[in-house]
């Protein structure tokens, strides 16, 4: 979505359709010691992922070991937020609120430019007809609780 300005580092910078900012408790992730950095990072507008010191590849979600090479030398880094749509779908039926009230909406699998890391994320502002595999997208951030943010793409 090249015509959309990037918003890496800002929070809630785009107007959202539906009620994307109303997030009942059952859709708010409960961070653990392992992934708190990811959710806290997103709440302050940073996409935090892990990079392996051994093989140089990245991963999301955070783990004790590198899922690529098995090394335990994984370190937190801040991703640029730029990625490419590997695939996507338009969700037109979801019976669970608040998703029910947001229909239809795009969910994409996004390969970050930091090799090895892929995120599945919503694209709240996207016109389904304008989304395509291979398009470049940029991370946006949405706070859903104290120190808990979600990563979206636009």
């Amino acid at each position: 979505m090249a015509e959309h300005p990037g918003h890496s580092g800002t929070r809630d910078a785009e107007p959202m359709s539906g009620n994307w900012n109303e997030n009942p408790p059952w859709v708010v992730p409960v961070p653990t010691d392992e992934d708190r950095e990811f959710f806290e990072g997103a709440s302050r507008g940073e996409l935090r992922i892990q990079r392996c010191d051994e093989c140089g590849l990245h991963q999301h979600y955070p783990r004790y070991l590198c899922s690529h090479c098995g090394s335990t030398e994984v370190k937190w880094v801040t991703a640029s937020g730029v990625g490419t749509v590997y695939s996507f779908t338009v969700i037109r039926q979801n019976g669970v609120p608040p998703f029910r009230e947001r229909l239809p909406f795009v969910v994409a699998a996004v390969d970050l430019e930091e090799t090895g890391a892929r995120l599945v994320a919503s694209m709240p502002g996207a016109d389904p007809a304008q989304v395509a595999i291979g398009m470049q997208v940029r991370a946006t951030f949405r706070s859903v609780g104290e120190g808990i943010g979600l990563v979206d793409f636009a």
Partner: peptide
């Protein structure tokens, strides 16, 4: 279509935690 996991009051299992908040469904 949303009723199979991560329903109200229930955190989804394992790594689905990172995807459930997107509204992705099994069909999706």
């Amino acid at each position: 279509t949303g009723g199979g996991g991560g329903q109200r009051g229930m955190q989804p299992p394992g790594p689905m935690k990172y995807e459930f908040p997107t509204g992705l469904t099994l069909v999706g």
